[in-house]
Every structure is written in structure tokens, then in C-alpha cells.
Design a protein around this nucleic acid. Structure first.
Lengths: 193, 193
DNA sequence: ATTTTGCTAGAGTAGCCGCTCTAGAGCGAT
DNA sequence: ATCGCTCTAGAGCGGCTACTCTAGCAAAAT
């Protein structure tokens, strides 16, 4: 049990399914995407799909988990480059890059639609907690260094920043995103005028 | 066709269905809520349901449209009470009151999950446009009166405010909302420190 | 009184969807 | 050579769902 014959082929196939699932979830939403359609898009049979993911929900969780790991890496890379305000702005920037993906906005909406399923909520919670900790850490430092406003506590600023970025992510699909990007918004919130 | 026998009874029934639909969409999401379940909750038969709403989607649009009208009224009431920064903060306050509804957060997520359906997108677009116009109008005035920061244009501030409030609405379910409310967040964004 | 029309109930239906099952091919170990 | 395992295909199935249909009742119109 669990022994994998050809590791390379295995992860490639798995990733292909995951990426097709991501695209279709983004375009049609979770419930309105059928496993059959994912199979068609990925060029596999249902047997193969359910071999890799015992459940459709498991495929979604797979996508989310991959995203979480990506976030983890991005944060630690950013953190090794610098701390304080710079790190926070760098994070906003990396998020903004993600938002450029034409499927990003759709996927955010799709996930929101099934956020109440415990398996989904768990991963999302992990990611949210991770980011909050990152923000609190670096905003505290930035506050101590007087890089940012000090009339609002770092904890509150962290929360507001998260709201701001979540809101921006939700509108990621809008083509009129030219007016004002996420980094500028965060800068406006954090830096005293 | 279209003649209504007892106006009172008609709208009461309709509203009852709408409010039950709202609750169930909030709790289970749109796709995972069955019309049968709404009927059970509202104490009616499927025949009645489909007499009032030819489609499940029509029921959702009905809920959204009711919300839009509510927003319209709230905005004009606020606007008649005052303008500029005060009006913007009053709007944030009224939104915050809405968020206190235990079903609000769930409903926001449910709607997000089907935002790609054109009928839903249309209503949401109307509401978004309405709010943006309100914000731009009053933030411009506030800016001219120097009630708020002037280093960022009112248009940008309007957008950031909308992001902030949308993000807050998304987290409305969280019980730890004690830490920092929406009004304070908007104030922090708008008022120079 | 009779007709018309809104309204309601509830059984019924067609279709879709997530998932299972079986059969077999490829490959590694013994 | 043989066994055991992963992997793949694809037909099939049980269950659920949005919606339809028919029939009857109440009340307004004539």
C-alpha cells in the first residue's frame, strides 16, 4: 500500500489534474464543475481521477494545500530578504502578482462558496493564521522602528491589512484594476500622511 | 395573467420564502441548498415555491434585489442626514450593523460562489456601482473640506474603502470580530495621523 | 350561479453527478 | 515464470434535484 511505482510520472499526473481542477473551479465554481468535466479537460478517465483523489473535495483541498505551501515559501523568502514594513509591502506585491493570473479571482470566489465545508475551512484557517502572524510580527517591528503610523496598534493594522487584501483579491477579476493596486492601498493604510 | 388576488397575502408569502431562502443559502451555500429544503423550512409545497419563483436562481436574485433596495434606502437616508466624511462613516456603521446578523457572513460567501452567473453579477454590479458613486461623491467633498487625507485621490480612497469593507464583510462570521471594527478601519484609512 | 383565475398541494419525471467496479496492462520483486 | 502491485480505462449505478403536471379549492367577476 502506498508504494509508488514511478514517482515522476505520479506527481506529474497529479499536478496536471490539480491544475485542470483549479482552472475549472475558477471558471465554473466548485459545485458546478463536474468530475467528468475535469477528466475530459485533463485527458484522463474517471478511474484515474478517483485513483489520485478519492473525492472531488479532495481535489479542491489538494489545490488549496498547494497554494498554502506556495504562500509559506513566499513568506519565508520575503522574510529572509528583510523585515518590517519592507516585508509587508513585499508580501502585498507578491499577492498582487498572483492576482494577475486570470483565474485567480474566479478561484477565490469558488472557494468562498464552499468555505463552510470543514476540510476547506481548515486549510483556509491555516493560511489565514500564517499570514496574520507574519503581518503582526513585521508590523510590530515596523511600528517600533516608526516606519509606520503608531496611532493604531500593530494587531489592528494587521487585521485591516488582511481585510484590505482579501477585498482586493475578491475584485481581482475586474479589468479596471488599473486604478489603484494593492500595494498602494496597503501603503496608504500603513504610512502616516 | 399577473393579476394578484390578495396583495397582502401575496407579498407576505413571497417574503417568507425569500427570508427562508436567505437563511438556508447562508447556512449551506447556494448549490447545496435544495428547493425542497427551502419549501420544508418555509412550510410550503414545491408547487407554491415555483409559483412565486420560476427558478431557484430567481429566488436568489430576489434576495439580492431586496438587499439592493435596502442599500439604496440606507444610502439616501444617510445622505439626507449629512455629507462628506460623516456620511461615509455612517455607511460603514450601517454595514457593520448588517454584519451583526449571524447569517450575513455565510450569505456573502454563498453569493461569492455563484457570482459568475450573469443574473447574479448584474445585481451585484448595480450595488457596487451605487456604493462606489456614493463614496466618491462624499470622499471628494470630504477631501475638499480637508476632513480626510489629501495625499491620495478620493477615487483611490473610495476603491480602498470598498476593498476594506468587502474584506471585513467576508470575515463577518468570525466570532473574534471584537478586535477592530469596520468603522475604525475606515477611519484609520481615511483620516491622516 | 357560473365561470374564470389565482393559488396551493404533492406526486411524478428526466437528467445529471459523484463514485464504484471490473478487467486488464505494465512493471518490479522473487 | 509467476505473483503482486500500481495504474488506467470506461461502463454502470444509486441517489438526488430542479422543475413539471394535474387536480382541486377559494374568491372575484359577470
Amino acid at each position: 500500500m502506498g508504494r509508488i511505482v514511478d514517482e515522476r510520472r505520479h506527481t506529474e499526473r497529479r499536478d496536471a489534474i490539480l491544475s485542470e481542477a483549479y482552472r475549472q473551479f475558477a471558471v465554473s465554481g466548485y459545485d458546478r464543475t463536474s468530475t467528468a468535466s475535469i477528466c475530459r479537460g485533463a485527458g484522463i478517465s474517471s478511474g484515474t481521477f478517483f485513483h489520485y483523489f478519492p473525492t472531488k473535495l479532495d481535489a479542491l483541498v489538494g489545490v488549496l494545500t498547494a497554494g498554502l505551501q506556495q504562500t509559506r515559501q513566499a513568506l519565508s523568502r520575503i522574510e529572509s530578504d528583510g523585515t518590517g514594513l519592507g516585508a509587508v509591502l513585499a508580501y502585498a506585491g507578491s499577492l498582487q502578482t498572483e492576482m494577475a493570473d486570470p483565474h485567480f479571482g474566479g478561484f477565490v470566489h469558488a472557494v468562498a462558496g464552499v468555505e463552510l465545508l470543514p476540510e476547506v475551512a481548515a486549510v483556509l484557517d491555516d493560511e489565514s493564521t500564517l499570514i496574520r502572524a507574519f503581518l503582526v510580527r513585521h508590523l510590530s517591528e515596523a511600528s517600533a522602528r516608526s516606519e509606520i503610523r503608531t496611532d493604531v496598534t500593530p494587531e489592528h493594522l494587521a487585521r485591516y491589512t488582511q481585510w484590505l487584501l482579501d477585498g482586493a483579491a475578491q475584485h481581482a477579476t475586474a479589468p479596471d484594476a488599473l486604478l489603484g493596486d494593492a500595494v498602494e492601498a496597503v501603503r496608504a493604510l500603513l504610512i502616516p500622511s
